[in-house]
Design a binder for these strands. Structure first.
Lengths: 225, 225
DNA sequence: TCAAAAGTGTTTGTGGTACACCCATGG
DNA sequence: CCATGGGTGTACCACAAACACTTTTGA
């Protein structure tokens, strides 16, 4: 932990927040630490960055090593740097975030005793400042959902309008009017019907998919002029 | 650059983008590097983080050392980590950003041969990936201006409505209708008249100040429900 | 035929946009 | 009295919000 010149170094890690929707509420992927510090406690997957990889590559690698998850779209969230966030010394972490559709299998990997999906409203006691990082990610997701068309990342490729509405309601924490929701999402032109229907408890629902090019063009309205 | 165990380390720096409004256009504060690499080239102020300071403290310190600027509200922008961004080796930098009112004196300090304000539309060739960092900051400012009430940070404590409008126009890069702008900004209740007037070329203008508590409460409207 | 979820229109109000002239001062 | 920038009101339109019933399926 010391350089040859005697000054103490700052270590750099990455941590990954994986958010998804399960049972109509937002969940985060946690791993149980096997090694100290905080052995046995829950944490988000992460680890030291190697000097020959980019931060995002490091995030992907540690995520894969600890949970087996691959091919998720990572986005840089924030860099956390509290002086006392790691008992081993000065460790700065760059947090990444992914918002993924529900059916994603994860399994415990190296350095992780166990893996679970936990509702973000009921976080257990967590290692380091990871609870803070998760809260930050949730808040950011709410903001992004509110002024961009990002809700589709929580759903599978094909989805019903009710599923989409429930996703929005889960993240925003409020209920929305069904008719207004449907009218606006359809008028926005960011989704299209697939022609298929999904059979369930009641009347079958039409399936839609999103149109990525149109989603990219959605611009929020300004507060001012 | 090497730890006692022989592995090569990742170095951590901070860089600071200072944006302001001069002559109705956005400018960024640049320093001319005195030492290699990139000696003689323009860069944004920054430097190595010490292990006993937070990143924001490091940003404040290096900003002060290089430019004499103090007491600006810094906000974390993004962490830049291209593998080849520094010819000396692996250096990751956390960029901070400040948006400040125009009359801010800066002077060259340690490790900086010179200091200047440069229009963001006409950036010179810059050291490291600093041009990319500045562009990132400008884009972020545009977004923030568009959906929060942040324009006041570009102006002195007391300002006229025309100054405020010119600030918005400069950042957004488009012209706005005077009557609509004034009506909306006044209806929003985020500014109040001071009762004073500013004498200029034509008719004197009323001075306003912003109401920070009200500014904090401005919420953008959602794209969806 | 009942339960369960999908699907559908109208009215009303607010707020955005477009637009042109008079006012107060200094030179 | 002229040049310069400050300050003001209205009409139209689009979109957001509130609101309840019918339809389709499986059990």
């Amino acid at each position: 932990m010391r350089n040859v010149d005697g000054t103490s170094a700052i270590l750099l890690t990455v941590d990954v927040v994986i958010l998804t929707l399960r049972d109509s509420s937002l969940h985060v992927l946690l791993v149980q630490r096997r090694a100290p510090p905080f052995a046995g406690q829950w944490a988000i997957p992460g680890g030291l960055v190697q000097s020959n990889e980019s931060l995002e590559e490091g995030a992907r690698r540690t995520l894969y090593e600890r949970t087996g998850i691959q091919n998720v779209p990572l986005e840089q969230l924030h860099t956390f740097d509290d002086l006392d966030r790691d008992p081993r010394g000065r460790v700065v972490t760059v947090a990444y975030c992914a918002v993924v559709p529900a059916p994603l299998a994860a399994h415990a990997g190296r350095n992780a005793a166990d893996v679970c999906w936990q509702p973000v409203r009921m976080l257990p006691e967590m290692a380091f400042d990871h609870a803070k990082i998760v809260q930050f990610a949730v808040q950011r997701l709410r903001q992004k959902l509110a002024h961009s068309a990002i809700g589709f990342q929580l759903l599978p490729e094909r989805f019903t309008l009710s599923q989409l509405q429930r996703a929005y309601e889960a993240v925003l924490g409020e209920s929305l009017d069904k008719r207004n929701f449907r009218r606006r999402i359809l008028q926005a032109g960011v989704i299209e019907p697939t022609g298929e229907v999904l059979f369930g408890d009641g009347r079958p629902a039409r399936l839609y998919r999103c149109i990525p090019s149109a989603v990219a063009e959605v611009k929020p309205r300004r507060v001012f002029p």
